Amino acid sequence: MSYNFEEERVIKEIREKNAKRVLLQFPEGLKYFSIDIVKKLREKLPNVNFIISGEPSWGACDIAEDEAQQVNADLIIHFGHTPYTWYYPKFPTIFINAESNLDISENALHSLENDISKYNGRKISLTATLQHVRLLSKIKSFLEDKGYDIVIGKPSNRFMFDGQVLGCDYKAAEVEADIYVIVSGGLFHALGLGLATNKPTIKLDPYLQKSEDITNDVRKILKVRYGKILQALDKRSWVIIQGVKVGQNRPNMIKYFYDKLTEKGYDVFTVTNKVLTLDILRNLDRNYIDVFLVTSCPRLPIDDLYNYEKPVLTPGEAKMIINNSLEPYIFPW
């Protein structure tokens, strides 16, 4: 397998906790391996009942505690994430990193150097998703040999690694740098890095073994987001979406926005939701509703709900409106 699922550690944890019924939870990109993992675990633990969660899992904010209770599980094994910044599950849960076994090639490193050289900066911030964070030391050494000043920032909690970022947590990128580099597959985390820093952003992809300058992609998204913000300025009827997944429920934030918006004399409605889609918004919508504010996950308005007919804002964007300040762009919050 191209990922390290730490089966021996999983077996050890299950034995130590004497668990007899175990729920395995995987993010979407790792579900493909789930049945193979169960086959391996059954060889050593034939008396344990393994259940695979088929529900979407979007991060460490989305631990299947309710599912585990419904199926009478003793333990959750959650693959692919470290514990979340401000939420730790109450249900017994073991986090398995599932780090990638991929290395980064010399050709990919030279591709990265070529993209960096298009800019005048010499100070480079290095970040990575959990699956590839172990590659940072190799990339750092390569770039330092080329004369660059490399900084790998500290994460937001003790469970994360230096340089590690999440789709909603770029604390490790809160460093002074000229260019920001992220080691990740796809565009999801890289676009978030660009939105969080508003600086030149380059993605180094271990799957494709090449780098890509996505700075212009970030600028295009920012234009769209500012368009949504301008549409929402002075609108007087708001719906606040309160996420009720355990790790996405932010009651203090709900209160903040409800109070601030009602102080302005606006009509404010609160709607609870677990999995927000365009269809759910359309079912809620009325002609007198002006703006939707999503407080569960800041990536939903940007990645999934960007083409809705009315502004769907992140908390940071709503705060910009409340503060009557369009600079800087606030992401995430």
Rank of each mutant, 00 (worst) to 15 (best):
P206H: 15
E28V: 12
K260N: 08
Y288L: 00
T93G: 07
N307I: 09
A19S: 14
S141N: 14
M320R: 07
G316D: 05
A98L: 01
N72H: 10
L41I: 04
I63H: 11
P251R: 14
K235M: 12
L204P: 05
G186T: 14
I254P: 01
N249I: 03
A98F: 00
Q164R: 09
L109C: 13
K228A: 08
I94N: 00
Y329E: 08
P298E: 03
Q25D: 11
N120K: 13
E174W: 02
K20H: 06
I104V: 14
D267L: 07
L281Q: 10
I241C: 03
F159H: 14
V48L: 11
C61Q: 03
Y258R: 06
E99C: 04
W86P: 00
R225W: 04
F91K: 04
R299F: 02
Y180S: 14
F95C: 05
K39W: 02
N252H: 14
A60G: 09
L193S: 07
Y226V: 10
I11W: 04
N273A: 11
K223D: 02
D62M: 04
L281F: 07
N107I: 13
Q164T: 08
I51P: 09
G247Y: 03
Y256N: 05
M1Q: 03
Q248A: 06
C61S: 05
Q69Y: 00
I214F: 12
S117R: 15
F79I: 01
K264F: 03
E99P: 04
T127M: 13
E113Q: 04
P301W: 15
R219A: 07
D162M: 05
I280W: 00
N49M: 07
A73N: 06
K154I: 05
C168W: 08
Q231V: 10
C168R: 08
T314L: 11
I214N: 11
S105Q: 11
E8L: 01
Q70K: 12
V71M: 15
L191H: 03
K274R: 12
K235P: 06
K264N: 04
L208P: 15
L109E: 14
L261H: 08
Q70W: 06
P56L: 02
F161R: 15
L41V: 03
N324V: 09
D213L: 09
L109V: 07
T82I: 01
Y170N: 06
C61M: 08
T82C: 01
I182L: 12
E106H: 04
G247Q: 02
N97Y: 00
K90V: 13
L126Q: 15
I76P: 01
I139E: 05
A108S: 15
K210R: 14
D62E: 05
V275M: 06
I289L: 09
S117N: 08
E13V: 04
K310L: 06
D217N: 11
G80P: 05
K138V: 12
T82V: 04
A177T: 05
N249F: 10
Y88R: 01
L24N: 02
I229K: 07
F91V: 01
L300C: 07
